[in-house]
Simulated scan of single mutants.
Amino acid sequence: MNINMLYYLGSKFSSNSFTVNSISLTAEIDDKGKTDAMKLLEGQYESFTFPIVFKHVSGKNHCDLIGTGWGILYLISDRMKKLLEENNLTGWKSFPVEIVDNKGEKIQEVYHGFSIVGRSGSINYKKSEIIEKRLVPNGPLSKYYKGLHPGMENWDGSDFFLPEKHWGIIVTQKAKDILTERQMKNLVFQNLAEIEIGVNAILKN
């Protein structure tokens, strides 16, 4: 699978979009180096009691993909869940959530936690092009990796997947086309061939 046919999936940053924050999830790192958000994203549910409760914090427009206050964790609408099921898209599963308003009352719109269980090998930055850019006019040149190359030799063939030790959601061309054609709201796709990541940011990690 060529990276020109693979995409990062994320949400738009809009003040009008319905957004929630978790009430019970913590940022503590367990003995395996995982936070609650990482475990839920990866579909590791053993340590959780469901439903996971979220509180509405901003926005009124109920979209199909909504942020949770954790950059890697999303909720999906019932409409999007049904679309994924109807089209037999693979590599994901959902978990029960409950969303309450400022008064603690449950909202009527149905959402589901979104986990990614498809996998590939780790990102290989040696395959990326190295480019130089100035962030500001007359500023210093900085080096960037252009193009994100998951280890597709170890890809399980899923439409939604996470590379090893990486928490950015990647989708296939098939999944992107279906989600786009059905006009799922608040989704953003970034082609892996166009992604740029600072070299220093990777070296520090």
Results as ranks from 00 to 15, higher is better:
Ser115His: 03
Lys185Thr: 14
Ile29Glu: 11
Ser22His: 12
Asn4Pro: 02
Pro163Ile: 01
Trp155Glu: 04
Ile202Met: 06
Gly59Phe: 00
Ile170Tyr: 08
Ser11Lys: 14
Asp177Arg: 14
Thr180Arg: 10
Ser24Trp: 09
Leu179Met: 15
Glu46Val: 09
Lys126Thr: 15
Asn2His: 11
Lys133Thr: 12
His149Glu: 07
Ile123Thr: 01
Glu85Ala: 10
Leu75Tyr: 00
Val199Asn: 02
Val199Thr: 04
Lys126Asp: 15
Asn124Lys: 11
Glu132Met: 14
Leu135Pro: 11
Tyr144Val: 03
Asp36Tyr: 03
Leu203Thr: 08
Leu83Ile: 04
Lys81Ala: 15
Pro96Val: 05
Leu148Ala: 06
Thr180Val: 15
Ser58Asn: 11
Phe54Asp: 00
Gln183Pro: 06
Lys185Pro: 04
Gln173Tyr: 09
Glu28Leu: 13
Glu153Pro: 06
Leu179Ala: 02
Phe18His: 03
Ile178Leu: 12
Val53Asn: 07
Phe95Gln: 01
Met184Ser: 03
Ile197Met: 03
His56Trp: 09
Arg134Asp: 08
Glu86Trp: 04
Tyr45Phe: 07
Asn61Cys: 12
Asp36Trp: 05
Asn154Phe: 11
Val20Ile: 11
Lys126Ile: 13
Met38Ala: 13
Gln108Lys: 13
Pro150Tyr: 02
Thr35Ile: 06
Tyr125Pro: 06
Asn138Thr: 13
Lys12Leu: 12
Asn4Trp: 06
Val171Ala: 10
Lys185Ile: 13
Ile170Gly: 07
Leu162Thr: 02
Phe114Val: 11
Cys63Met: 05
Lys93Ile: 01
Phe189Arg: 04
Thr19Trp: 05
Ser128Tyr: 00
Asn138Ser: 15
Glu85Asp: 12
Gln183Tyr: 13
Val110Cys: 12
Leu135Val: 12
Lys146Ala: 12
Asn87Leu: 06
Val53Asp: 04
Lys133Ile: 13
Ser77Arg: 04
Thr26Glu: 11
Phe48Ala: 00
Ile131Gln: 04
Gly113Ser: 03
Lys82Thr: 10
Gly121Gln: 04
Asn87Thr: 06
Phe114Asn: 09
Leu9Glu: 04
Gly157Asn: 05
Leu187Asp: 01
Ser128Lys: 02
Ala201Thr: 15
His56Ala: 04
Glu164Ile: 03
Val117Ala: 05
Ile72Phe: 07
Phe50Arg: 01
Asn186Phe: 06
